[in-house]
């Protein structure tokens, strides 16, 4: 083993190391970090979203049952890496995989209901009576009334995002139950029990067309400051 040779570090050496370290370090740290964190930068700093902002059809209002919620599938086009519309537009003839371009989610639709506080059962359903006579051709005011009285709820539990289900108890009381940790909500999505911190997520942008079709846009009733928790499965 040869003896170690410890030469002094000159001012030039020091500057050289400093320069090399800065240049190489900058190239090897900043771009990779931005590369990996680009979804964070796009979402948190620039406020961009992967989800299409247009109206998506859900169901016809006449399909909503009177005294219990029904689940419908809603399909949002999304733009994520290889699922972008750029590629589709560039090669319109080639049928590339469909599955990557949309994300499906279940929505619970129901009529707003008053709950009897003693029994927990539904006391009164706010279902407009004109629905018994017609299922399309609604006037402006009727559409307003329909919109006001429909619950459009995401099926993502406000606790940890598990899919909630509608369950009728032994004593006939209906509730949304989260199968993961037992969060409970009533038919309007109001928090009843368990660990969830809030009510079920409600779609805020809802519109009903003349033919009775219900459309939603992506977006929930999120209180300011608590926007970090969302149903991330759209």
């Amino acid at each position: 083993m040869t003896e170690l040779q410890k030469d002094p570090i000159t001012r030039g050496d020091f500057l050289g190391f400093g320069l090399l370290g800065t240049v190489v370090g900058a190239i090897l740290t900043i771009p990779p970090v931005a590369f990996v964190l680009s979804p964070v930068i796009k979402t948190d700093l620039l406020g961009e979203s992967d989800i299409d902002e247009g109206w998506q059809e859900v169901a016809s209002v006449s399909d909503i049952p009177t005294d219990e919620p029904a689940s419908f599938t809603i399909e949002f086009p999304i733009e994520q890496i290889y699922a972008g519309p750029d590629v589709q537009n560039q090669f319109p003839d080639e049928k590339r995989s469909d599955e990557e371009f949309t994300l499906k989610n279940a929505v619970w639709l129901s009529w707003k209901s008053e709950i009897n506080h003693d029994t927990g059962k539904i006391a009164k359903v706010e279902r407009p009576s004109f629905l018994d006579e017609k299922s399309s051709g609604f006037s402006e005011s009727e559409r307003e009334e329909l919109k006001k009285n429909i619950n459009v709820l995401s099926n993502s539990c406000a606790h940890l995002g598990c899919p909630v289900r509608w369950l009728i108890n032994l004593d006939g009381k209906g509730e949304f139950l989260c199968p993961c940790h037992g969060g409970l909500y009533d038919i309007n999505g109001t928090y009843e029990g368990g660990p969830p911190p809030r009510d079920m997520y409600r779609y805020v942008n809802v519109k009903i067309e003349e033919d009775g079709k219900l459309y939603v846009k992506h977006g929930y009733d999120i209180e300011p400051g608590l926007d970090k928790q969302q149903p991330y499965v759209v």
């Binding site: 979804p39 890496i81 990557e100 970090k228 991330y232």
Partner: peptide, 24 residues
């Protein structure tokens, strides 16, 4: 992860690769 104080949003957007579950 989204319940982490201060970095909750960044954590989940990093893991999701966006603001929704998908190919990313």
């Amino acid at each position: 992860g989204s319940y982490s104080p201060f970095i909750g949003g960044a954590t989940i957007h990093f893991l999701l690769g966006g603001d929704t579950v998908g190919p990313a």
